[in-house]
Protein backbone atom coordinates (compact mmCIF):
# COMPACT_ATOMS: atom_id res chain seq x y z
CA UNK A 1 0.00 0.00 0.00
CA UNK A 2 1.18 3.46 -0.74
CA UNK A 3 0.35 6.51 1.25
CA UNK A 4 0.55 9.77 -0.60
CA UNK A 5 1.11 12.90 1.41
CA UNK A 6 1.18 16.39 0.15
CA UNK A 7 2.31 19.03 2.56
CA UNK A 8 0.72 22.47 2.10
CA UNK A 9 2.58 24.64 -0.28
CA UNK A 10 4.02 27.24 2.01
CA UNK A 11 6.90 28.27 -0.11
CA UNK A 12 8.17 31.71 0.75
CA UNK A 13 6.08 33.65 -1.73
CA UNK A 14 7.24 37.23 -2.05
CA UNK A 15 4.49 39.57 -0.93
CA UNK A 16 3.20 41.42 -3.95
CA UNK A 17 4.72 44.81 -3.41
CA UNK A 18 1.67 46.93 -4.28
CA UNK A 19 2.95 49.73 -2.07
CA UNK A 20 6.37 49.55 -3.68
CA UNK A 21 4.93 49.79 -7.17
CA UNK A 22 2.71 52.71 -6.14
CA UNK A 23 5.67 54.43 -4.47
CA UNK A 24 7.92 53.91 -7.47
CA UNK A 25 5.23 55.18 -9.85
CA UNK A 26 4.75 58.27 -7.72
CA UNK A 27 8.48 58.98 -7.59
CA UNK A 28 8.71 58.56 -11.35
CA UNK A 29 5.95 61.15 -11.70
CA UNK A 30 7.75 63.54 -9.39
CA UNK A 31 10.99 63.18 -11.32
CA UNK A 32 9.19 63.75 -14.62
CA UNK A 33 7.39 66.76 -13.17
CA UNK A 34 10.69 68.22 -12.02
CA UNK A 35 12.29 67.59 -15.38
CA UNK A 36 9.44 69.09 -17.40
CA UNK A 37 8.53 71.82 -14.92
CA UNK A 38 8.86 74.61 -17.56
CA UNK A 39 6.32 72.82 -19.76
CA UNK A 40 3.93 71.79 -17.01
CA UNK A 41 3.93 74.89 -14.84
CA UNK A 42 1.20 77.39 -15.79
CA UNK A 43 3.26 80.35 -14.47
CA UNK A 44 6.84 81.23 -13.84
CA UNK A 45 7.67 80.18 -10.22
CA UNK A 46 8.67 83.68 -9.29
CA UNK A 47 5.88 85.56 -11.12
CA UNK A 48 4.49 87.89 -8.48
CA UNK A 49 0.86 88.94 -8.88
CA UNK A 50 -0.18 90.92 -5.81
CA UNK A 51 -3.72 91.19 -7.11
CA UNK A 52 -4.09 87.43 -6.77
CA UNK A 53 -2.71 87.07 -3.24
CA UNK A 54 -3.81 83.96 -1.30
CA UNK A 55 -6.28 82.78 -3.91
CA UNK A 56 -7.84 79.38 -3.19
CA UNK A 57 -7.90 76.37 -5.50
CA UNK A 58 -9.68 76.44 -8.81
CA UNK A 59 -9.83 78.98 -11.61
CA UNK A 60 -6.50 80.28 -12.79
CA UNK A 61 -4.51 78.66 -9.97
CA UNK A 62 -5.16 74.92 -9.53
CA UNK A 63 -3.48 74.84 -6.09
CA UNK A 64 -4.01 78.46 -5.22
CA UNK A 65 -1.39 81.15 -4.59
CA UNK A 66 0.72 82.41 -1.73
CA UNK A 67 0.76 85.84 -0.11
CA UNK A 68 2.68 87.42 -3.00
CA UNK A 69 0.30 85.83 -5.50
CA UNK A 70 2.86 83.30 -6.79
CA UNK A 71 1.23 80.19 -8.25
CA UNK A 72 1.74 77.29 -5.79
CA UNK A 73 1.56 74.53 -8.40
CA UNK A 74 4.26 76.19 -10.46
CA UNK A 75 6.44 76.73 -7.40
CA UNK A 76 6.06 73.12 -6.21
CA UNK A 77 6.91 71.82 -9.67
CA UNK A 78 10.05 73.93 -9.91
CA UNK A 79 10.83 73.26 -6.27
CA UNK A 80 10.99 69.55 -6.99
CA UNK A 81 14.22 70.27 -8.84
CA UNK A 82 16.25 71.58 -5.89
CA UNK A 83 14.41 69.30 -3.48
CA UNK A 84 15.48 66.18 -5.41
CA UNK A 85 18.88 67.19 -6.71
CA UNK A 86 20.18 68.65 -3.47
CA UNK A 87 19.77 65.38 -1.47
CA UNK A 88 21.45 63.51 -4.34
CA UNK A 89 24.43 65.83 -4.24
CA UNK A 90 24.49 65.57 -0.46
CA UNK A 91 24.53 61.77 -0.58
CA UNK A 92 27.21 61.75 -3.26
CA UNK A 93 29.48 63.85 -1.06
CA UNK A 94 28.68 61.81 2.03
CA UNK A 95 29.20 58.51 0.17
CA UNK A 96 32.53 59.58 -1.28
CA UNK A 97 33.79 60.53 2.18
CA UNK A 98 32.11 57.73 4.11
CA UNK A 99 33.02 54.88 1.79
CA UNK A 100 36.62 56.04 1.62
CA UNK A 101 36.96 56.37 5.38
CA UNK A 102 35.12 53.11 6.09
CA UNK A 103 37.18 51.16 3.59
CA UNK A 104 40.48 52.60 4.79
CA UNK A 105 39.55 51.80 8.40
CA UNK A 106 38.58 48.22 7.56
CA UNK A 107 41.55 47.61 5.30
CA UNK A 108 44.31 49.12 7.43
CA UNK A 109 42.97 48.10 10.82
CA UNK A 110 45.14 48.97 13.83
CA UNK A 111 45.48 52.59 14.84
CA UNK A 112 43.95 53.87 11.58
CA UNK A 113 40.80 51.92 12.31
CA UNK A 114 40.76 53.10 15.92
CA UNK A 115 41.17 56.72 14.86
CA UNK A 116 38.48 56.60 12.15
CA UNK A 117 36.10 54.73 14.44
CA UNK A 118 36.58 57.21 17.30
CA UNK A 119 36.07 60.21 15.02
CA UNK A 120 32.97 58.76 13.42
CA UNK A 121 31.60 57.79 16.84
CA UNK A 122 31.99 61.35 18.08
CA UNK A 123 30.39 62.72 14.91
CA UNK A 124 27.66 60.15 15.27
CA UNK A 125 26.88 61.24 18.79
CA UNK A 126 26.74 64.91 17.76
CA UNK A 127 23.34 65.92 16.29
CA UNK A 128 23.80 66.34 12.55
CA UNK A 129 21.62 69.41 12.20
CA UNK A 130 23.35 71.21 15.03
CA UNK A 131 26.68 70.48 13.35
CA UNK A 132 25.44 71.97 10.08
CA UNK A 133 24.02 75.03 11.84
CA UNK A 134 27.51 75.59 13.28
CA UNK A 135 29.03 75.35 9.82
CA UNK A 136 26.45 77.76 8.46
CA UNK A 137 27.20 80.14 11.29
CA UNK A 138 30.78 80.23 10.05
CA UNK A 139 30.32 80.08 6.28
CA UNK A 140 26.93 81.71 5.88
CA UNK A 141 23.54 80.35 4.89
CA UNK A 142 22.71 78.92 1.48
CA UNK A 143 21.89 75.72 -0.27
CA UNK A 144 25.53 74.94 -1.15
CA UNK A 145 26.72 75.28 2.43
CA UNK A 146 23.78 73.19 3.61
CA UNK A 147 24.53 70.40 1.15
CA UNK A 148 28.22 70.40 1.98
CA UNK A 149 27.57 70.55 5.71
CA UNK A 150 24.97 67.81 5.68
CA UNK A 151 27.25 65.79 3.41
CA UNK A 152 29.84 65.94 6.18
CA UNK A 153 27.22 65.12 8.79
CA UNK A 154 25.98 62.06 6.89
CA UNK A 155 29.45 60.70 6.16
CA UNK A 156 30.06 59.01 9.56
CA UNK A 157 26.95 56.81 9.24
CA UNK A 158 28.06 55.68 5.83
CA UNK A 159 31.62 55.20 7.04
CA UNK A 160 30.40 53.03 9.91
CA UNK A 161 28.25 50.96 7.59
CA UNK A 162 30.98 50.60 4.98
CA UNK A 163 33.50 49.60 7.60
CA UNK A 164 31.29 46.79 8.87
CA UNK A 165 30.54 45.33 5.43
CA UNK A 166 34.13 45.83 4.28
CA UNK A 167 35.45 43.94 7.30
CA UNK A 168 33.30 40.93 6.38
CA UNK A 169 34.31 41.17 2.74
CA UNK A 170 37.97 41.60 3.53
CA UNK A 171 37.99 38.34 5.48
CA UNK A 172 37.00 36.39 2.37
CA UNK A 173 39.81 34.39 0.80
CA UNK A 174 39.44 36.01 -2.61
CA UNK A 175 40.89 39.17 -1.08
CA UNK A 176 43.78 37.12 0.30
CA UNK A 177 44.17 35.65 -3.17
CA UNK A 178 44.63 39.11 -4.66
CA UNK A 179 47.28 39.87 -2.05
CA UNK A 180 49.05 36.60 -2.79
CA UNK A 181 48.95 37.56 -6.46
CA UNK A 182 50.92 40.67 -5.58
CA UNK A 183 48.19 43.24 -5.99
CA UNK A 184 48.57 46.42 -3.95
CA UNK A 185 46.11 47.36 -1.22
CA UNK A 186 44.74 50.48 -2.94
CA UNK A 187 44.08 48.59 -6.16
CA UNK A 188 42.40 45.70 -4.34
CA UNK A 189 40.13 48.12 -2.47
CA UNK A 190 39.25 50.36 -5.40
CA UNK A 191 38.98 47.75 -8.13
CA UNK A 192 37.65 44.74 -6.27
CA UNK A 193 36.64 45.22 -2.66
CA UNK A 194 34.45 48.33 -2.99
CA UNK A 195 32.79 47.16 -6.25
CA UNK A 196 31.79 44.01 -4.41
CA UNK A 197 30.25 46.16 -1.68
CA UNK A 198 28.52 48.48 -4.14
CA UNK A 199 25.18 46.69 -4.04
CA UNK A 200 24.78 46.85 -0.32
CA UNK A 201 26.14 50.40 -0.06
CA UNK A 202 23.72 51.65 -2.73
CA UNK A 203 20.91 49.87 -0.90
CA UNK A 204 21.89 51.71 2.25
CA UNK A 205 22.06 55.08 0.44
CA UNK A 206 18.58 54.65 -1.00
CA UNK A 207 17.23 54.37 2.53
CA UNK A 208 19.15 57.47 3.54
CA UNK A 209 17.67 59.57 0.73
CA UNK A 210 14.43 60.35 2.54
CA UNK A 211 16.35 61.46 5.58
CA UNK A 212 18.61 63.65 3.45
CA UNK A 213 15.61 65.32 1.81
CA UNK A 214 13.99 65.95 5.19
CA UNK A 215 17.16 67.40 6.69
CA UNK A 216 17.61 69.79 3.77
CA UNK A 217 13.96 70.85 3.95
CA UNK A 218 14.39 71.44 7.65
CA UNK A 219 17.40 73.69 7.07
CA UNK A 220 15.54 75.65 4.40
CA UNK A 221 12.56 75.96 6.69
CA UNK A 222 14.82 77.35 9.39
CA UNK A 223 16.17 79.82 6.90
CA UNK A 224 19.67 78.30 6.70
CA UNK A 225 19.23 76.57 3.38
CA UNK A 226 17.78 77.81 0.12
CA UNK A 227 17.18 81.53 0.11
CA UNK A 228 14.29 83.37 -1.54
CA UNK A 229 13.22 83.61 -4.30
CA UNK A 230 14.04 79.87 -4.57
CA UNK A 231 10.99 77.63 -4.50
CA UNK A 232 12.64 74.95 -2.37
CA UNK A 233 9.88 73.05 -0.56
CA UNK A 234 11.25 73.65 2.92
CA UNK A 235 11.51 77.34 2.23
CA UNK A 236 7.96 77.38 0.83
CA UNK A 237 6.59 75.85 4.03
CA UNK A 238 8.30 78.54 6.03
CA UNK A 239 6.98 81.29 3.77
CA UNK A 240 3.49 79.82 3.81
CA UNK A 241 3.42 79.71 7.59
CA UNK A 242 2.38 83.34 7.95
CA UNK A 243 -0.64 82.76 5.73
CA UNK A 244 -2.04 80.20 8.18
CA UNK A 245 -2.89 83.04 10.54
CA UNK A 246 -4.84 84.66 7.73
CA UNK A 247 -6.81 81.45 7.30
CA UNK A 248 -5.00 80.24 4.14
CA UNK A 249 -3.66 76.73 4.66
CA UNK A 250 -2.60 75.95 1.11
CA UNK A 251 0.73 77.87 0.94
CA UNK A 252 2.15 75.68 3.77
CA UNK A 253 0.13 72.56 3.06
CA UNK A 254 1.07 72.10 -0.61
CA UNK A 255 4.87 72.01 -0.19
CA UNK A 256 4.49 70.15 3.14
CA UNK A 257 2.48 67.45 1.48
CA UNK A 258 5.02 67.23 -1.31
CA UNK A 259 7.84 66.65 1.19
CA UNK A 260 5.89 64.07 3.15
CA UNK A 261 4.73 62.18 0.07
CA UNK A 262 8.17 62.00 -1.51
CA UNK A 263 9.85 60.93 1.74
CA UNK A 264 7.28 58.21 2.41
CA UNK A 265 7.47 56.98 -1.17
CA UNK A 266 11.25 56.93 -1.02
CA UNK A 267 11.28 55.00 2.23
CA UNK A 268 8.85 52.39 0.92
CA UNK A 269 10.85 51.91 -2.27
CA UNK A 270 14.14 52.26 -0.43
CA UNK A 271 13.50 49.56 2.15
CA UNK A 272 12.40 47.21 -0.58
CA UNK A 273 15.43 48.03 -2.72
CA UNK A 274 17.78 47.69 0.22
CA UNK A 275 16.43 44.21 0.91
CA UNK A 276 16.82 43.25 -2.71
CA UNK A 277 20.32 44.64 -2.87
CA UNK A 278 21.24 42.79 0.29
CA UNK A 279 22.06 45.81 2.43
CA UNK A 280 22.36 45.05 6.10
CA UNK A 281 20.41 47.43 8.27
Amino acid sequence: MTAAITVDARLPVRRRPVLVIAGAAFLALVVLAAAFAPLLAPYAPDAVDLSASLVGTGGDHPLGTDASGQDLLSRVLYGARTSLIAPLALLAIAALLGVTLGTVAAWRGGWVDTLVSRVTDVMYAFPGLLFVVLIIAVFGAGITTSVLGLGLAFAPTIAKYTRSVALTERAKPYVDAYRVQGMGGVRICVRHLVPNLARSIVGYLVVLFGEALMSLATLSYLGFGSQPPSSDWGLMVQEGQAAIVQGALLPALVPGTAIAAVVVAFNVVGVWAADRLGARR
Binding site: T2, A4, V7, L11
Partner: peptide, 11 residues
Amino acid sequence: LLPEAASVTGR
Protein backbone atom coordinates in the same frame (compact mmCIF):
# COMPACT_ATOMS: atom_id res chain seq x y z
CA LEU B 1 11.19 16.39 8.44
CA LEU B 2 10.13 16.87 4.85
CA PRO B 3 10.75 19.87 2.67
CA GLU B 4 7.64 22.00 2.37
CA ALA B 5 5.40 21.15 -0.56
CA ALA B 6 7.10 17.79 -0.96
CA SER B 7 5.06 14.96 -2.42
CA VAL B 8 5.92 11.60 -0.98
CA THR B 9 5.04 8.04 -1.91
CA GLY B 10 6.19 4.89 -0.18
CA ARG B 11 6.40 3.96 3.46
